[in-house]
Design a protein around this nucleic acid. Structure first.
Lengths: 192, 192, 192, 192
DNA sequence: AGTTAACCGAGACGGTACGTCGCGTCTTGTT
DNA sequence: AACAAGACGCGACGTACCGTCTCGGTTAACT
């Protein structure tokens, strides 16, 4: 009577199968039955541990992200923002982007998925806020800025273009955006 | 030797049924069968004219929007932006918001839906760009600003908070956002 | 104020299309829409003149049969029966057989089709009865035989094997059957 | 690692529902959806185990027949044939007749149904042939008769009248038929 | 000679059933 | 007890035809 405990092997196979399926066929084509078949696992095992396919992919994303590091910190907040946002835009074009896109879509009509998305984002946002706080303390950005909102101003354009696809995104999009936002972020010159 | 013509009555009943069902139950709960039943129409009639439920709702949104007017223009671009963005955020909390949210979600894995979303947005964005261009010509905003990007900077935070739900949105959110963006939009004081 | 007259051209095209479709694809694959398309005719025209696809095929069969002659009469009833039954069995293997088979099937659950089948058969049966009556008068067959029943005894085996397919039918099936039936048909030798 | 096993309860409910529906409404009115609804079963369960409604009814008939006994044997082959054929004609007027009629119709354009019909008939025919063989050995019928063909001669008239409905069948039809066939079946008086 | 009404083709319409897919639950052994 | 396998009831899918219903257009008989 060995397996009275959860099989880590099955868990990993399921998460990987879900990730791969989504990457290959898109979020809409991912099904519990497909994951079970690909992972060589019974459907019961999936339903025992996850409430929906979104939950599996959320776990996949969180797994992947745990390997990733925190916010870059070269001392120059503008360079760091440019580096991080460009990195995000690049990431959105990979398999991860396909999955992330699907999760955001699922979150629009699935409260649990929405919670997962929020939880995932919270970590990134907190990291960004922390980096901005440090920059503010270093006098690189205005000290009367709501940093949570600052994150939304910075990443809003990315999600706007990525999710709404209103136009082809230019090469160095975020460089341009950040340059435009600069006067809104830097301490106002008239103050002392 | 002309064939029987398309039934305008059925078209309208279908679009309305789709709208109502989506408003009542959410996008995910909308089914072609449900629409057909509610509209008193055969499924064939729906499939004859629309490729998916998203297409029907896109038509519903376009119909509704055709009634709406253009961008507000009081002469004060900041007042107008504040008014329009607040109006959008209010709209997002209505039935229209439910539908729009669903369409954006569908657009993430349905190319046709994405086209529809893009087409709908294009009109609003063009109106905003036109209003910004007028403000620029009036010297109210910087003349070196990519206006298309300006729209993304202004509306990005709205979609970011609305779609990603990372935090409860404050009361006068857009007032704060616009205030923060002001230095990025106004002509730089150091120039003359 | 007489109406425009029925189009003989359309009538013929419909009957032929129905025949050909049935011959090519089998009775079950024949549809009103298919006939209309193949005949280059509106569905209305079909529904105006025929109540069902069976009715069209009944007309096709009757048309075809009108060309055919009556019962063979060489003076030898046994030779004539052998010739005619063999000819029927050969006919059943042609396109006509496919259609006739379908009509008999349809007749099992469609009263109108059953009437058509009965009407078509009536002519053949009457011809056979007439031939048998002549043979009886010539002293070739028993005079106490119910001739209607005699037809059923003679053709029953054909339909039994053809419709129920219980075994492969031997080459000279009807020769054997008629030989076996001979004692039942000929005047009994003990009588005077 | 065995899978879940087939539900005998569902199997029985489906076969019974199909039988009842066919008896009540006729073969043509039987639908898979109707059977599923009446049996309280998913359509998938039906399609998993049967290829068509005909297949279900074939099973129903085989089930019913498994309960039935073999050919009557009083020692008098003519009495036995009269009893059995009359019994068949009576049976054809019951619900069983409705279903059997439908299956024969289906067999005309469905190879699988044809196989089922053949399989069902084979048992009855074999029983009849066996009884005839016994009678032949007892000297009650000619010993040069192809017994398979004899069955077709005896039952042919029944199916001819039942399927083709060319005339109202007289009360004691098979008595008359068998009386007429007698000379064809009995050992020829001229032999010794 | 013009009117007109029944015919024609085309095909849209409200329906019903099709056969399939995936859902989430369940049952059955196996490990 | 957790596992793989997969059958189950269910709901929706998108398709095929049903039989009815407009649509113009065409044509023959009757003003």
């Amino acid at each position: 009577m060995s397996p009275a405990i959860r099989s880590e092997e099955a868990r990993q196979a399921i998460v990987e199968a879900a990730f791969d399926l989504c990457a290959e066929q898109g979020f809409a084509a991912v099904t519990i039955e497909g994951i079970a078949a690909r992972a060589g696992v019974g459907k019961t095992t999936i339903y025992r541990w996850w409430p929906s396919k979104a939950a599996i992919l959320i776990e996949a994303v969180e797994n992947a992200r745990d390997a990733a590091a925190g916010y870059p910190d070269t001392g120059d907040i503008y360079a760091d923002l440019a580096a991080q946002t460009s990195s995000v835009m690049r990431l959105f074009k990979t398999d991860f982007g396909t999955i992330w896109r699907g999760l955001i879509a699922a979150a629009q009509s699935d409260e649990a998925a929405a919670d997962g998305v929020t939880r995932i984002l919270r970590v990134s946002i907190d990291a960004c806020v922390a980096r901005l706080a440090k920059a503010r303390d270093a006098g690189q950005i205005r000290d009367d800025l709501d940093l949570e909102m600052a994150v939304e101003i910075i990443y809003g354009p990315i999600y706007h273009t990525w999710l709404l696809r209103t136009r082809p995104v230019p090469e160095a999009y975020m460089e341009t955006v950040l340059a435009a936002l600069l006067p809104a972020l830097t301490p106002s010159p008239g103050r002392h």
